[in-house]
Design a protein around this nucleic acid. Sequence first.
DNA 1: ACCGAGATTGCG
DNA 2: GCAATCTCGGTC
Length: 201
Amino acid sequence: MTQGLDPTAPATEVARELLGRHLVRVVDGVRRSGRIVEVEAYVGHEDRASHTWGGRRTKRNETMFMAGGHLYVYLIYGMHHCLNLVTGPEGHGEAVLLRALEPREGIEAMHIDRPKARRTRDLCRGPGRLCAAMAVDRSLDGLEIGRSNDLWIEAGEPVQDRCCITGPRIGLGHTGPWADAPLRYSILGSPFVSDPRPISR
DNA sequence: ACCGAGATTGCG
DNA sequence: GCAATCTCGGTC
């Protein structure tokens, strides 16, 4: 179900591997999918931006300590969901946040769950929007990807190294060197990323 | 018990 | 620019 992807690998590796693959979700028999164009790695207890920083365990982040391959879904700002794929061995507290998809299948269904999105481009651009469009909520938290049979990853179209770009993760401010680590991975030139930039040279 | 901030979004 | 309002950690 994960098509050669090893979710027990380090978060940085999984993040890179996820680019170009397809996230697939089936709700009420309707298939929705999108090409993964932007993710962020949260690399464990030494990562100040991670919910597991310092090894803290709370009711919310408990699933982030599970083995790679589980889904970590949490609520942010009291209203939006964020979908993560837990990575690494059990106990590490690593994950990859899925930030943006290029919608492929089930676009009509996505629009129903995101009535405010006028353009297809805006359906899955941003972690909260992605979850709304793919009907992801906390009921999926702690499930194993592929096992629940309604959310999995398919091979998609691999991304060449020269088309993979990295940058600082979004929303951390510039409070220190740790916030500048290039742990955001996106597909060069995709208009479906959070912060699309022109292809410049 | 209270308060401020956060891996965000949409509206004015 | 700001409100929506859950979770967590610091403080009283």
